[in-house]
Amino acid sequence: MKPKAPTREQLEQYALRGLGYADDHVKDPFSMKDVSEWLGISYSYFYHIFAEIMGEPYWQYVKRHRLELAAGLLRHSGYNIGEICDLSGYATLAAFTKAFSNHFGRSPRAFRKIDELPNEKRTLEMTAMITAAFAQQGSAIGGFFSFDRAEHVILPDTVLYYTLISYGQDPIAQLVMKMSYHEQRFRKMLDMLDLPQGKIITGTLDAVPVTNYEKLSMYAGICVPQADAHIHIQMASQFQHLIQKRMAGGHYLRLQVPLDFTTAGVPMYDFINRCCREGIYKMSGNHFFISLTGPGLVEIYIPYMKQV
């Protein structure tokens, strides 16, 4: 009997898990063969699946993703260019500088001096326009985003189990329309796992605002402390469809705001960008996120470099 051809949903899962692998191994050397073997499919099969589903070859995505994350670090972190080279998975500074210059049309050093990034205005305008119809109204929103209101907290290393809500076309609109469903699903998971310390979070795998708006990958998921080994065993056996991402612990700024995630998105970025540019703090990574703590209430988490 001839085996059934995989469904479109199954093909998408291969592509999205491959995308998640690239994001989780940004700093690590790996090959496309490593990814296809990890997925349990052939190299050529994965090559064609990814290109068909995602609209670009896999290694082109890996290279673009690494360079865009590097650009985000140049924008908001306090790392020097050599450190950003290492964090982006490049073996030498010369290779990183050449790849970065070819991709962005200027050197990392020159890029760091740009006042407004090429995609910045459009991405923020698109996001603000789409979320305006769903956002809470109020003139005091900006007052919630003050450095004086932020708490300094230390988070443990965690594992994010997530699903990609959108990957291309109109990512913010997809996020807004689908989040309620995914939030309910993840809350049921937390109840079933009896995991009150777990966080339901949302964000992007990409570097805002470096990544082109149409290529943003928006996720929703739950963060589980890495030390909770028994929970990870349960997650691996019961929720194999979820993608995993390691999230570094350490120093974070936590900002509680009485808004929904839709309303909080743009002012959150404005707050991050303003504080970094004014030297109030520098980020230690691109992985800031929004935690959905209750109806009309979120917490913003921003990884930052503690000054010594």
Results as ranks from 00 to 15, higher is better:
171 P>H: 08
190 L>C: 13
68 E>D: 13
57 P>C: 11
177 M>W: 02
265 G>R: 07
233 I>A: 13
67 L>S: 09
198 G>W: 05
299 E>R: 12
261 F>L: 05
201 I>E: 09
124 L>G: 04
203 G>S: 15
273 N>F: 07
31 S>C: 05
119 N>T: 08
201 I>Y: 05
125 E>N: 09
56 E>R: 14
297 L>S: 11
275 C>M: 12
308 V>W: 03
262 T>G: 13
80 N>H: 10
13 Q>H: 12
181 Y>D: 12
100 F>W: 04
107 S>K: 06
197 Q>T: 13
23 D>N: 08
149 R>M: 07
302 I>V: 15
162 Y>A: 05
127 T>E: 12
269 Y>F: 15
140 A>T: 09
274 R>F: 05
247 M>E: 15
48 H>N: 15
18 G>A: 14
233 I>H: 11
230 H>G: 01
235 M>S: 11
214 E>V: 03
24 D>T: 01
265 G>P: 00
303 P>S: 12
261 F>V: 03
169 Q>W: 06
156 P>Y: 02
3 P>N: 05
51 A>G: 10
304 Y>E: 14
276 C>Y: 00
92 T>F: 04
17 R>K: 15
46 F>W: 07
114 I>L: 15
28 D>M: 11
177 M>R: 15
203 G>C: 10
279 G>S: 10
139 S>P: 00
194 D>P: 01
2 K>G: 03
31 S>E: 10
30 F>H: 14
255 L>Y: 04
268 M>F: 12
102 N>E: 15
286 N>F: 02
285 G>L: 05
165 I>Y: 03
86 D>Y: 10
127 T>P: 00
50 F>T: 05
303 P>F: 09
132 A>I: 01
181 Y>T: 13
289 F>L: 13
43 Y>V: 04
246 R>N: 13
130 I>W: 01
5 A>M: 11
94 A>Y: 00
84 I>H: 02
161 Y>A: 08
43 Y>I: 04
300 I>P: 03
75 R>P: 01
49 I>W: 05
45 Y>P: 01
211 T>R: 10
86 D>W: 07
236 A>K: 11
212 N>E: 15
